[in-house]
Computed example of a mutant assay.
Amino acid sequence: MIRSCYIIDDELHGIEVLAKYVQQTPGLELIGTETDPLEALRKISTKEIKPDITFLDVEMPELSGIELSYLIRDKTEIVFSTAFKNYAYRAYDANAIDFLLKPISYERFLQALDKIYAKKNTAPIEPVNNFIFIQPDNKKNHLKLNTDEITHIEGLSNYVKIHTQSEKVYTIYTSLKLILEKLPPSLFLRSHKSFIVNLKFVEVINGNEITIKGNHIIPIGGFFRKELMNKI
Rank of each mutant, 00 (worst) to 15 (best):
C5H: 11
G65H: 06
F195T: 05
N129G: 03
G214E: 10
T46A: 03
I15W: 02
N95I: 09
G14W: 07
N198D: 05
D52K: 13
V169L: 02
N208A: 14
I72E: 09
P185F: 02
K139Q: 12
G214Q: 11
Q23K: 12
Y6W: 08
L189I: 14
S4V: 07
K213M: 13
L100G: 01
K177F: 00
K140F: 08
Y70T: 14
T33F: 02
N158A: 02
E29N: 14
G221D: 07
Q23R: 12
G221F: 11
T35M: 10
H13A: 12
K193L: 03
K119E: 05
L100R: 00
T122H: 12
L189N: 09
K102W: 06
Q111V: 09
G207L: 04
N138E: 03
A40Q: 00
K115T: 04
E126F: 10
Y21H: 10
Q23T: 06
E227M: 15
I8L: 04
A112Y: 06
I78W: 04
I53L: 15
T82C: 02
A94L: 11
A118L: 11
E11L: 12
L178V: 08
K226M: 13
I97Y: 02
N130V: 03
R225I: 06
Y21M: 08
S105G: 12
N95Y: 15
V58N: 08
I104S: 04
K200W: 05
P136I: 00
Y89H: 11
Y87K: 09
I210R: 04
G214T: 07
V79K: 02
F84C: 00
E154T: 05
S64H: 09
P184R: 01
I150V: 03
V17A: 05
D93A: 14
I116G: 09
F195D: 03
I49D: 07
N138R: 09
D9S: 06
V17N: 05
P124V: 11
N121K: 15
R42P: 00
L38N: 10
I53R: 06
V22Y: 07
Q111D: 13
Q111L: 13
R90V: 09
V22N: 06
L18F: 09
L199A: 13
E67F: 13
Y87M: 03
D137P: 00
Y170G: 01
L28I: 12
E167Y: 05
P51K: 09
L189R: 08
M1T: 13
P61C: 04
I31C: 13
I212M: 14
E67L: 07
I7D: 10
K168P: 00
K200G: 04
F133K: 12
F188A: 08
E126G: 13
G32S: 04
H13N: 15
L30Q: 10
P127M: 08
V79Q: 03
A19P: 07
Y89F: 14
N86V: 03
H13W: 08
I205V: 15
L38F: 01
L63A: 11
A83N: 05
A91G: 15
G27H: 11
L12I: 15
E48G: 01
K140A: 11
M60P: 13
N141H: 14
T46W: 01
K102T: 02
K161P: 01
I78Q: 06
R90S: 11
L12Q: 15
I8M: 05
A118I: 06
V202K: 09
P185D: 08
L56P: 07
K120F: 06
E62G: 01
G207T: 08
I212F: 06
R3P: 10
